[in-house]
């Protein structure tokens, strides 16, 4: 197996990395670029903990080869805050206890942001279905939904 060089953009910054042909984007983000915010909860696209955006589209980074990232724009949880200024979703998750252990939180924030970017005023049901691919075992989802809705309301009024 010979390694592949990939040039891509992560959270707005141009980066190059070398990866194996069978390496997932998740492994490259975590292992090659040190961006360990995205987590591997299953490796099969069933838990959403590895959620990132690729060219604006929400995907599981475990279900994408790193090589496919050539020329793409990748967005990860590390890029949501602007410096020390938290995104309203991040602040809302803190204010509404939308996390307990926090391991699903990066994926949920990336996914929720992708939702609100498309639909600033979702119903609870729309939030629940959009986030159905993000498993959380701690919260029972209740406070997550409240946190997303509160952030959405705040972003609408901003």
């Amino acid at each position: 197996m010979s390694a592949i060089t990939v040039s891509t953009t992560v959270n707005g910054d141009a980066v190059d990395f070398i990866c194996q042909p069978d390496e997932s984007l998740l492994d490259a983000l975590r292992g090659r670029l040190g961006l360990t915010g995205a987590k591997e909860g299953c490796g099969t696209g069933d838990c959403g903990a590895c959620s990132v955006t690729v060219n604006g589209r929400l995907v599981c980074s475990c279900l994408m080869l790193a090589a496919e990232a050539e020329g793409a724009e990748i967005g990860t949880v590390e890029g949501i805050a602007k410096g020390n200024a938290l995104h309203p979703l991040q602040q809302s998750f803190l204010d509404h206890a939308g996390l307990q252990c926090g391991v699903c939180t990066p994926g949920i924030l990336v996914a929720a942001k992708a939702l609100l970017d498309r639909n600033p005023d979702p119903t609870d049901e729309e939030v629940r279905y959009w986030l159905a691919g993000n498993l959380c075992r701690c919260t029972g989802y209740d406070k997550i939904i409240r946190a997303v809705q509160s952030a959405a309301a705040q972003m609408r009024s901003a």
Partner: peptide, 9 residues
């Protein structure tokens, strides 16, 4: 530990 957990740190 909240900020670390919502920023991926």
């Amino acid at each position: 530990d909240g900020i670390d957990k919502v920023t991926g740190r």
